[in-house]
């Protein structure tokens, strides 16, 4: 496996991490998926300090579909100068980032802070279903939709907002004892 910096896996998707805020922003929305962690403490104070007006939006209870819709609406009413700040566990952060990119935000307009990365969204390439599972790269987990045992690959789609999973033992071939798993 190459070092992850050279892959589609963001650093903040494998270890909790926060990016610095952009001090030239004209305005921001601080979207949190972990209300109990009180994002005001960190980014909120910094935004206040930098004199950047912002809205605090709590989506901790929202489903993936609701997150995508809410983020889309938020962006569509914003003006250039706006930054989207996403704070919380990995799965909703990836979902919100996917919606933000679809609604034409640039990477440099999306600022991310993950508070939890042990549960990951995993896309099953065979049935296209997404499962949110407690797993890490190289683990094998069962797809909640089709039951296939999937290898968690070090590949993250910004558009799907999930890790790639594919059948872990697809190369096994059983025939009069001559098969082997590669």
């Amino acid at each position: 496996m190459p070092t992850l910096e050279q892959t589609s896996v963001p650093a903040w998707a494998v270890a909790t991490a926060g990016m610095p805020l952009d001090r030239v922003a004209a305005r921001a929305a601080l979207v949190t998926f972990a209300s109990d962690q009180e994002p005001r403490r960190t980014w909120g104070q910094e935004l206040d300090h930098a004199g950047i007006p912002y809205d605090l939006i709590d989506l901790s209870e929202a489903s993936k579909a609701d997150i995508r819709q809410a983020v889309g609406l938020l962006i569509d009413s914003a003006s250039v100068g706006f930054r989207l700040m996403l704070h919380g566990p990995l799965a909703p952060v990836l979902a919100a980032r996917a919606a933000a990119l679809e609604h034409s935000l640039l990477d440099e307009e999306i600022i991310v802070c993950t508070t939890e990365v042990s549960e990951i969204p995993l896309y099953c390439v065979h049935c296209t279903g997404e499962s949110v599972v407690r797993a890490a790269i190289d683990d094998v987990v069962t797809c909640l939709h089709c039951g296939t045992d999937l290898l968690v690959y070090y590949h993250v789609s910004r558009r799907q907002g999930s890790f790639l999973g594919f059948k872990h033992d697809a190369e096994a071939y059983e025939l009069t004892g001559a098969g082997e798993a590669a």
């Binding site: 589609s8 896996v9 590949h155 790639l164």
Partner: peptide
């Protein structure tokens, strides 16, 4: 590879899994 999964990725992201090429700066 899976086009359906990769669509929307950057050129560098898509080639993330290829061994060696990054250290060599090929991509």
């Amino acid at each position: 590879w899976s086009f359906g999964f990769d669509v929307g990725m950057s050129f560098l992201e898509i080639h993330g899994p290829v061994p060696r090429v990054h250290d060599m700066g090929v991509i």
